[in-house]
Amino acid sequence: MNHNQSGNSILYKYLDINGAKMMLYYSDLQFTNATKFNDPFDCHPSLIDFSKVPLERCKGWTPDIIELLESDRYRRYRERAWVCCLSKVFDSLLMWSYYNSHKGVCIGLNMEKVAKHLNVSHGMVVANSGYEVQYRDIIEKPDYFQDEIDFYHYQMCTKGKDWKHEQEVRMFILDPSPSSMKLLPNQDDKNGPIDWKEVRAFPEIGGECFESIYLGVNMDKNEAEKIIKTAKTFNPDIKIYQMEINSNAFRLDAKRKK
C-alpha cells in the first residue's frame, strides 16, 4: 500500500439535505474539478518547487523556460483532475458546522465495496482507493528536480495545516468519461456555454456501499424520515445514527436508531 493510501475501511461524506438526497437516490459519488475548491492552494502547482533547474536539464533552453514547461504540466493535471473528498471522522464539530450547520447528514461508506465499482471505464486514471491528505506548511514544498517522490499524488493530496481538522481522504479521476458527467440542478446554458470544469462527475456505486448514516443535531424530523426511507431502499441493513450533544463535553455523540 502506498504510504499515503488510507487503510480506513469506512470513510465519511458530510452533506447538506439536498446533497444527501441526491447521493442516496442516485447511489453515486460526487467528484469535483480540482480547480473549484474553496481553498485556492488546493492541488496548485505552487505546492512544488520548480525553480532549481539543473543545467543538464536545459539542453539549449534557459532554466526559466524549463521551469515554466514543467510547472505548466502540473497546472494542466489540476485542470484535468476531479476529486472526491471524504473524511476519517463522522463527529467533527467543525465539519458539521461548515457543511450543513448540523442540519444535514454524514454518510459512512464501505471503501472496500466502493472500490469494486470504480474502474477505468470512469476515466483515464481512476484512484479507487482513498489517499490521505497530508497537512504541511508551504515552505516544506519539495524540489521537483532533486526529491524522489510521487509529485502527482503530492499535488493532489497536500493541504495547509489550517485544514487539518478535516482528516481528509481523497479519491480522484483524471479525465472523467462523458458518461460519468452530470449537470447540477441549477446548471443550464441559458446564459452561454457551461464551463466544463463546473460540471461534476457522478460515478455510480452500489447500495451495499452505504454502511451508515448520521443525522445532524438540528435536522428536521420530516427530512430525517425521508433520508432514512431513501437509504433503506438501497440498503435495508444500513445503520442509522442520530447525532446528539454531549452535555459534559464539547463533543457530539452518535446514538443508534432502532
Results as ranks from 00 to 15, higher is better:
residue 186 N to A: 00
residue 130 G to Y: 04
residue 94 L to N: 10
residue 217 V to K: 04
residue 115 A to R: 08
residue 84 C to E: 12
residue 54 P to Y: 07
residue 27 S to T: 11
residue 195 D to H: 01
residue 182 K to V: 08
residue 125 V to S: 02
residue 203 P to K: 04
residue 214 Y to H: 01
residue 94 L to F: 00
residue 184 L to C: 09
residue 21 K to G: 06
residue 78 R to Q: 14
residue 6 S to H: 00
residue 140 E to W: 02
residue 215 L to I: 15
residue 143 D to M: 03
residue 167 Q to L: 12
residue 237 D to W: 00
residue 102 H to D: 12
residue 243 M to Y: 00
residue 149 I to L: 15
residue 248 N to E: 13
residue 22 M to K: 04
residue 220 D to A: 09
residue 2 N to D: 15
residue 70 E to S: 12
residue 182 K to I: 08
residue 232 K to M: 10
residue 46 S to T: 05
residue 73 R to G: 06
residue 32 T to P: 02
residue 115 A to C: 00
residue 169 V to E: 08
residue 195 D to A: 00
residue 61 W to N: 15
residue 171 M to K: 06
residue 128 N to H: 04
residue 45 P to Q: 12
residue 218 N to C: 07
residue 146 Q to E: 10
residue 140 E to Y: 06
residue 6 S to Y: 05
residue 84 C to R: 07
residue 172 F to T: 04
residue 101 S to F: 11
residue 239 K to L: 13
residue 250 F to Y: 10
residue 52 K to F: 05
residue 93 L to D: 07
residue 107 I to T: 11
residue 99 Y to S: 01
residue 231 A to H: 08
residue 95 M to T: 10
residue 212 S to L: 10
residue 35 T to M: 01
residue 139 I to K: 12
residue 179 S to D: 15
residue 126 V to M: 01
residue 94 L to A: 08
residue 111 M to E: 15
residue 139 I to N: 10
residue 113 K to W: 09
residue 69 L to H: 12
residue 251 R to C: 00
residue 29 L to C: 10
residue 38 N to S: 03
residue 60 G to E: 01
residue 36 K to P: 05
residue 84 C to P: 03
residue 250 F to L: 13
residue 44 H to E: 15
residue 204 E to R: 12
residue 125 V to M: 12
residue 173 I to R: 00
residue 210 F to W: 12
residue 106 C to V: 15
residue 256 R to S: 07
residue 197 K to M: 14
residue 77 Y to E: 13
residue 186 N to Y: 05
residue 145 F to M: 06
residue 229 K to H: 05
residue 112 E to W: 04
residue 220 D to H: 07
residue 175 D to L: 07
residue 65 I to E: 14
residue 160 G to A: 08
residue 131 Y to E: 09
residue 135 Y to P: 06
residue 190 K to I: 12
residue 59 K to P: 08
residue 13 K to N: 08
residue 85 C to M: 07
residue 113 K to T: 14
residue 58 C to M: 13
residue 4 N to L: 13
residue 12 Y to Q: 07
residue 228 I to R: 03
residue 58 C to N: 11
residue 45 P to D: 09
residue 77 Y to M: 02
residue 114 V to K: 02
residue 26 Y to A: 06
residue 60 G to N: 01
residue 216 G to P: 01
residue 25 Y to P: 05
residue 11 L to S: 10
residue 218 N to G: 08
residue 32 T to R: 02
residue 6 S to E: 14
residue 240 I to L: 14
residue 172 F to W: 15
residue 9 S to V: 10
residue 115 A to F: 00
residue 6 S to K: 02
residue 7 G to V: 11
residue 103 K to T: 15
residue 151 F to N: 01
residue 73 R to H: 01
residue 92 S to G: 03
residue 35 T to K: 10
residue 195 D to K: 06
residue 242 Q to S: 09
residue 143 D to I: 00
residue 46 S to L: 11
residue 109 L to S: 04
residue 211 E to Y: 04
residue 138 I to L: 14
residue 158 T to V: 11
residue 188 D to I: 11
residue 229 K to S: 13
residue 203 P to A: 07
residue 25 Y to Q: 14
residue 31 F to C: 04
residue 241 Y to T: 13
residue 21 K to R: 09
residue 62 T to Q: 13
residue 198 E to S: 09
residue 87 S to E: 08
residue 153 H to D: 15
residue 16 D to Y: 03
residue 1 M to Q: 10
residue 171 M to R: 08
